[in-house]
Design a protein around this nucleic acid. Sequence first.
DNA 1: GTCAGTGCAAACCCTTTGCAGAAAG
DNA 2: CTTTCTGCAAAGGGTTTGCACTGAC
Lengths: 150, 150
Amino acid sequence: MENTEHTQSSGKQDMAGLLKTHGILPTQQRLLIARVMFGRDQHFSADQVMNLVNDSRDRVSKATVYNTLGLFARKGLVREVIVDPSRVFYDTNTSDHHHFYNIDTGELRDIKSTEIQINTLPELPDGTCAKGVNVIIRISNTGQQADQAG
Amino acid sequence: MENTEHTQSSGKQDMAGLLKTHGILPTQQRLLIARVMFGRDQHFSADQVMNLVNDSRDRVSKATVYNTLGLFARKGLVREVIVDPSRVFYDTNTSDHHHFYNIDTGELRDIKSTEIQINTLPELPDGTCAKGVNVIIRISNTGQQADQAG
DNA sequence: GTCAGTGCAAACCCTTTGCAGAAAG
DNA sequence: CTTTCTGCAAAGGGTTTGCACTGAC
C-alpha cells in the first residue's frame, strides 16, 4: 500500500489517501463524511454526522451514513465508543486513550492514556485475548444530584 | 422441573427487606424479579430477566420488567453496565469492580477492583464530579481475527 | 378508598436491510 | 461492462409510554 500521509489540513486529496490506506474505496459520500469528521471535533454520533454532512450543499442518506461509519470502524479509521445505551459514538482518535462521559450533558471527552496509569491488569480468561482496555469515567455537573452514589 | 414453592416465606422476607432498604415498594412482580436476579448469575439483560421470570409459573409483563430494572438501577440495587450498543446489562454486584466483555460470546465477567490498580487518575473537567470509574477489557476468543487490518 | 404499580399494545428511536438505480474502475 | 455503492423506505429490535385495571396499604 502507498503511504499517503494525511496532513489533516488541505482536504480532498489527503482524505482519499487516508481512506485508501485503510482499504476503503474513496467514494464521494465517504469523502464527505470523512472530511466532516476529521475536520472538527472528534466524537460523533451517527446523527451528528448526518447533520454535519447535510448542512453543506452536499447530502448523504441516513443509510449511507450508518454504513459508512460502520465501515470506518471495521477498517480502523475511527473507533466506536460505547458509553450510552441509546447511541454509539465514533471517535476519530484511534490511539490508545480513555474517556470522560458527562451523564448530564452527554459530552464525551478524551483522557490521554498517559493520564491514567494502570498498575495491575488481571489475567485474561482462558482462551481469550485482549482487544482493548477502555476506561470510562462517568462524571456529572456539580450541584446536581444523581440517584445513586457510584 | 423446578420447585416453584421454594421461597414462599423465608426468601420473600429477605428480598422484601432488601427492596425496602432501597426505598422500593416490594410488590409481587418486583419480588419475583429480585429473586430471579439475586438467586443466580449476576449479569442480566432485560430479555434474560424476562425469560427467567416467566419460566416459573408466575409472569411479569415486559413493560414491568423494564420499568423494574430501571427502578432498581436508579435506587442502587443493581448497576447498569454499558458495553454493548444493542442492550443494557444489569449487574447485581454494585460494589466497586470492573468487567471483561467477550465480544464473540457477549459474556460479561467481573474483575475484582483489587485486580486492577489504577495509579493516576486525571483531573476532572471544571464543575464536574466523578460518578464512577468503569474499566472494560474487551476480549475475544483466541484464534478468531477481527476485521481491523488496513 | 386511595394511590401507586401492572399489563398490554402501540409508539419510539436508533440502526439495519432489500432492492433498483448510479458510480467507480 | 462489471462490481460496488448509494438512496429510499420499510423492517428490526430493544426500550418507553398511555391508559385502564389491579393490588398494596
